[in-house]
């Protein structure tokens, strides 16, 4: 996928990362944490133009949960409130042991998609989220068994090599869907040429999604739209609407990126179109 997709009027898939697992309401009180709040947020972003919701689970006090039952409660609330949105579970989890990382894949029904981190990244000063190849392979195997489309999370250029390695080790269904992530720390430096290089480095026919953390969310989403990719926005990745002003909701961030896409001449994909683009229907 490339600028050709832009020229071909391919619709853009907007993913909303509603809650995340790092910061919470202590960073922005508008960030949804409970299943009911997440379900309502899913309906609001779907109305605003998102076709995928990226979900983490939390305990009632906002702390992380990886339990299948907690994801089930969230999915049930999303399906109660939203119409047809695609559910994508995170399998990320700094510090969580491998068996725990599999739990989000085991809801009934399984999520249509799940994230798959392509390699290690540092956290705080004394912690690394390891994401070993063995864990990546075992998560991918369970995704295949359960009919879940992996969203390959590329946090830096080294993870592009890891993506190629995964493609060599395992049989990935078309299209390979890679999320290119830009921001601080272990992430690729958020510079436009780094996005272009990452796009150029993807396997032929791969589709890509674009994330910029924090203040980079809007410019990287805009570039992702122009360069023929898809985009992710939401309070997981950025709690501000503009400098010094907290976002009111996930929907507010989705509405803005949908306006940008339309101004640039790209329609946003419906959930049905997103399923076709991502090969979710066999």
């Amino acid at each position: 996928m490339s600028y050709e997709a832009f020229l071909a009027d391919e619709p853009v898939i907007v993913t909303a990362a509603l809650t995340g697992g790092v910061h919470g309401k202590e960073a922005n009180p508008n960030l949804p944490e409970t299943p009911e709040e997440i379900g309502q947020a899913a309906a609001a972003v779907e109305d605003a133009g998102a076709s995928v919701v990226h979900l983490h689970a939390r305990r009632p006090n906002g702390e992380r949960s990886f339990e299948t039952d907690r994801f089930q409660e969230i999915d049930d609330a999303v399906r109660r409130h939203a119409d047809d949105v695609i559910v994508q579970h995170s399998t990320g989890g700094t510090g969580a042991p491998a068996d725990v990382r599999h739990l989000p894949l085991r809801t009934d029904p399984p999520p249509e998609m799940a994230s798959l981190d392509m390699g290690p990244l540092n956290r705080y000063d004394h912690l690394t989220s390891e994401n070993s190849r063995a864990l990546i392979d075992s998560l991918h195997a369970e995704m295949v068994d359960r009919g879940i489309k992996p969203e390959l999370e590329v946090f830096n250029d080294g993870h592009l090599n890891e993506l190629y390695g995964l493609c060599e080790r395992r049989d990935l269904a078309d299209p390979v869907y890679a999320t290119l992530i830009f921001g601080p720390g272990t992430l690729s430096r958020p510079r436009p040429r780094n996005l272009l290089n990452a796009i150029d480095s993807l396997p032929d026919d791969a589709a890509f999604n674009t994330i910029g953390f924090g203040r980079h969310q809007l410019p990287f989403a805009t570039m992702g739209i122009l360069f023929g990719g898809h985009v992710r926005v939401g309070l997981e990745d950025n709690v501000y609407y503009r400098r010094g002003e907290l976002a009111e909701s996930n929907a507010q961030l989705v509405e803005r990126v949908v306006r940008v896409a339309r101004e640039l001449g790209r329609e946003v994909a419906s959930p049905s179109q997103a399923r076709d683009l991502l090969g979710l229907r066999e």
Partner: peptide, 9 residues
């Protein structure tokens, strides 16, 4: 120093 490694996708 908050976590500077971004979100937890």
């Amino acid at each position: 120093r908050r976590d500077r490694s971004g979100g937890n996708p």
